[in-house]
Design a protein around this nucleic acid. Structure first.
Lengths: 178, 178
DNA sequence: CAGGTCATGTAAAGCGTTACATGATTTT
DNA sequence: AAAATCATGTAACGCTTTACATGACCTG
C-alpha cells in the first residue's frame, strides 16, 4: 500500500471536514492552509480521480440546476488512511524558500543600496500577507476547532516575527551605510 | 531574453564568489543557503551546461591528477545578468511548506494526544537544524561578508523563534488536556 | 446584458528529488 | 586494504504551475 502523496493528504483532510467538490476544496485551501501548504486545480482534480480509484473517496453527481457537480466524500478506508498519516511520527517535512534571503546572501556583489531595497520589498510582501490573515481571523467561521485556530495564529505570529526581523535588518543596514 | 531560472540564480551567485566545479557549488549550497534554498546535483550539472550555451559562464577542464574536473567561471554577461536579478524589485518569492502545520490543521480529527506528539516532533527537527547552523557559525570562514552573515543570523533567529512557538503550543495543549 | 462566481477538467512545461552508474584520489 | 571524499553525470519519476477550454448560473 503506497503512502499518500502530499496532495492526497490535503484532499483527504479537507473531505474529513465534510463532503466537497474539487472547487470547494480549492476555496478552502486558499482560505486556510495556503500560507503553509498551497494546492492548484491541476493537482486537485486528478488527485480526486486517483483517490476514487483507490477507494479512499467516493464521488456522486449532484448537479445544482443545469450545472454539473461532483461531490466527494471520504470512505471508511479513506478516513483510516488519513488518521494513519495524522498519527504517524516520521520526520515531518519543513521547507522554506525565500528569494529575498538568496539575494541578501549574494548582496556583497551589489552593495548596501541593493540590500535595503530587498528587505523593504520583502517586508511589504509579509505585511500584505499579515493583513489577509488578520482579515481571515476577523471573519471567523469555525474557530470552535482548535486545529485551524492554532495554524492561523501561527501564520499571524510568524508574519509578525518576520516583519520585526526586517525592521531590525533595515536599522542595521542604515547604520552600516553611514 | 528569458529570465533566469531559480537554479540559475543560485549557480551564478555561487560562481560570483569565485570559480567552482559543480561539486563545489553543491558543497557551498549545503553549507550556506540550504536552509532557505536547496539544490541537488541533478539541477546543478544540467544548469551549468545550459548557462554555458547561453554564454553566461565558461567551463575549463582543469584535471587534478587523473581526476576529471570542469571549473566554471562567470562571464561578463553572466555577471550582468546576476546583478540585474539582484537589483530587480519584482515581488520576491516566499514559500513555507510545513507538514506539521498541515497535521495540526486537521488534528481535530484525532484529538489532543495526536497534536502534542506532532509539535514535539517538529521541535526536535528544528532543534537539530539550529545546532547545525550554530556549528556553521562557529567554523566561520568568510564572515567578513555581510550577506552570508545576515542570512545565517536569520536562520538561527528564525529557528529559535520556531522552537519558542512550539514550547508555547505544547504548554497550551497540556492545559487543554486537563 | 455584462461581469463575477461556480464548476470541471486537460496539456504542456517547468521544477526538483532520488537513484543509479562510474571511477580516481585521499585518508585512515 | 577499506572507507571517505572528489568528481561527473543521466534517467526516471514525481510534483506543481500555468494556460487553456468550456459552459451554466447569479447579481447588479
Amino acid at each position: 500500500m503506497a503512502s499518500l502523496s502530499p496532495t492526497a493528504r490535503v484532499v483527504l483532510g479537507m473531505l474529513a471536514l465534510g463532503k466537497q467538490t474539487g472547487y470547494d476544496i480549492k476555496q478552502m485551501v486558499d482560505k486556510s492552509t495556503r500560507h503553509f501548504w498551497a494546492l492548484s486545480y491541476g493537482q486537485i482534480y486528478p488527485e480526486l480521480q486517483r483517490l476514487e480509484e483507490q477507494g479512499l473517496v467516493v464521488g456522486r453527481s449532484e448537479p445544482s440546476g443545469g450545472r454539473a457537480r461532483q461531490v466527494y466524500e471520504l470512505t471508511d478506508a479513506g478516513r483510516d488512511r488519513l488518521h494513519e498519516w495524522l498519527l504517524s511520527d516520521e520526520e515531518p517535512l519543513f521547507e522554506l524558500r525565500c528569494e529575498t534571503l538568496l539575494k541578501l546572501f549574494f548582496s556583497d556583489e551589489v552593495g548596501d543600496e541593493g540590500r535595503a531595497v530587498q528587505v523593504r520589498s520583502f517586508r511589504k510582501v509579509i505585511e500584505r500577507k499579515l493583513e489577509q490573515l488578520r482579515a481571515l481571523e476577523a471573519t471567523s467561521d469555525s474557530w470552535e476547532h482548535l486545529g485551524p485556530r492554532l495554524t492561523l495564529r501561527f501564520g499571524i505570529q510568524h508574519s509578525e516575527w518576520l516583519i520585526e526581523w526586517c525592521r531590525e535588518a533595515e536599522a542595521l543596514l542604515q547604520k552600516e551605510a553611514q
